[in-house]
Design a protein around this nucleic acid. Sequence first.
DNA 1: CCCTGATTCGC
DNA 2: GCGAATCAGG
Length: 192
Amino acid sequence: MSWTDERVEMLKKLWAEGLSASQIAAKLGGVSRNAVIGKVHRLKLSGRAKSTKPAAPRVRRTPNSGGTSRPASSSASSGGSSSGSGSSVGTFTMPQRTPPSVTHTIGATALKQDHEVVAYKAPHRDTDDVVAPMPLKLKLVDINENTCKWPFGDPLQGEFYFCGHGNEESSPYCKYHSKLAFQQPQDRRRSR
DNA sequence: CCCTGATTCGC
DNA sequence: GCGAATCAGG
């Protein structure tokens, strides 16, 4: 299909209304969104509602100068483009097992009382005589192989730290949190 | 991966 | 002039 006056008019209108190129292409029919964008550019209608945007910092593309282009084979696209999930420094990965929300509540509650309280009885069904330790407020940088890595708080919120108490060997958590972390299989309530 | 617009360039 | 391919972001 070609760009008749009507179609161009429609294009201008829709573009002015803020519809996306693909939407306009769909409405007009018979054209791809690329066709629409291309036309828009030719009509010099690009920059739409673009406030402070004097010049486009576009980086010149370099397919291959003056030669036969578009050989389909984009050649060495290799994996140089990073985006690698590699190991970004500073990134912390939460434990696979999401700590039960109960713990957070407890932690928070205990925190409000702040000092004084050194320990508190474990919540309900925990018949264990294991006592939950008050979390030492260890920062990410302060934890190591021997500190419990049970997280408290929300990394996105203000407070975020780790339990930090000593652990049994080979465990990332202290005795108490190891229990919470490694067995949850208790009966799951029918959520529905 | 979905989407957006921007750009290039063979046709 | 046209628009597919491609790019650069969100």
